[in-house]
């Protein structure tokens, strides 16, 4: 009998094990749904898979009679546009602010405490301010995402700039590099892998702020739809939407990891001496 942690699964076993909890969850849902529906065929809490299919068919593959749109895809498009715009602006801001603030001592002394304080403001608490300032349109939703994600990313960039060994900065000077050259050619590439990781970790927060903003004031979007149909207890719409959002988040996470491997090949090498 070996110690428990010395039992390591083979690859096929590992894949099977990874699938198991998902299958288990589906089975438990099916049993629960079956039992409830047997008791009350009009039960709305745990609809059967076939009613998911019907609801989704109506939203995703049937033209809306009033607007002529495919609601599901329109919701997805609107939400992703907001999310990606917000994240894009956040990344641009965190590099434009984080790199100089992390690298130049005068800027660091001046802005680091302020950014630290700023990043602690709960974004949802200022959502009313954003609605007042920017109206109920797209701007306030995008600003909320930026507000929630950019300060965290900026601090992270500034901190990882400080972690680059001083020797490298000295070395770059002996090679005749200017401040701007050091920032763009020495520091930026070394900060990128960390930025990709932080961005992946920020995805959850970004989705949270998006759905919160859409729930409160919106005319479309995945979060809007979920909160709209909640009034009718339409679990047959809410559950597939939640699964879809999860899938989208997972795919974005995966895409960012792949982009990091592609853009920062040096960071993802196996540490094997030649």
């Amino acid at each position: 009998m070996k110690r428990a942690f010395n039992y390591v699964p083979s690859r096929p076993t590992a894949i099977m094990l990874a699938c198991l909890p998902f299958i288990l969850a589906v089975i438990i849902y099916l049993i629960g749904s079956e039992m409830r529906l047997a008791e009350n065929p009009k039960d709305k809490l745990m609809p059967s898979f076939s009613s998911f299919g019907e609801a989704m068919n109506a939203l995703a593959f049937t033209e809306n009679r009033r607007t002529g749109e495919y609601v599901f895809w329109q919701d997805t498009y609107v939400s992703l546009e907001r999310l990606l715009t917000g994240l894009g602006i956040s990344v641009a801001l965190c590099l434009l602010i984080g790199l100089p603030v992390g690298f130049l001592p005068y800027l660091r002394r001046m802005w680091e405490p302020f950014i630290a304080a700023f990043s602690l403001i709960p974004p949802l608490a200022v959502l009313p301010i954003l609605f007042i300032m920017f109206g109920l349109g797209e701007t306030s939703k995008i600003v909320l995402i930026v507000f929630g994600v950019a300060p965290f990313l900026t601090r992270d960039v500034a901190l990882s700039v400080a972690q680059i060994p001083r020797e490298q900065i000295i070395k770059a000077q002996t090679l005749g590099a200017s401040t701007l050259q050091i920032m763009t050619q020495i520091i930026l590439p070394q900060v990128l892998p960390r930025l990709f990781d932080s961005l992946r970790l920020s995805l959850g927060a970004a989705w949270l702020f998006l759905i919160a903003a859409e729930a409160i004031a919106s005319e479309g979007g995945l979060g809007y739809r979920i909160f709209l149909v909640r009034r009718y207890l339409s679990m047959d719409v809410i559950l597939p939407y939640v699964l879809w959002i999860t899938l989208l988040a997972f795919l974005m996470d995966y895409a960012l990891a792949a982009m990091s491997r592609w853009a920062c090949r040096w960071k993802h090498l196996e540490m094997k001496p030649a």
Binding site: P165, E167, Q168, I170, Q190
Partner: peptide, 20 residues
């Protein structure tokens, strides 16, 4: 009063750029 190209340097570690 700043490091300049007239004086090259090699440190014990971290002298090269890991991303190049």
């Amino acid at each position: 009063d700043e490091p300049q190209p007239d004086r090259g340097v090699v440190f014990q570690r971290y002298s090269v750029f890991p991303h190049m």
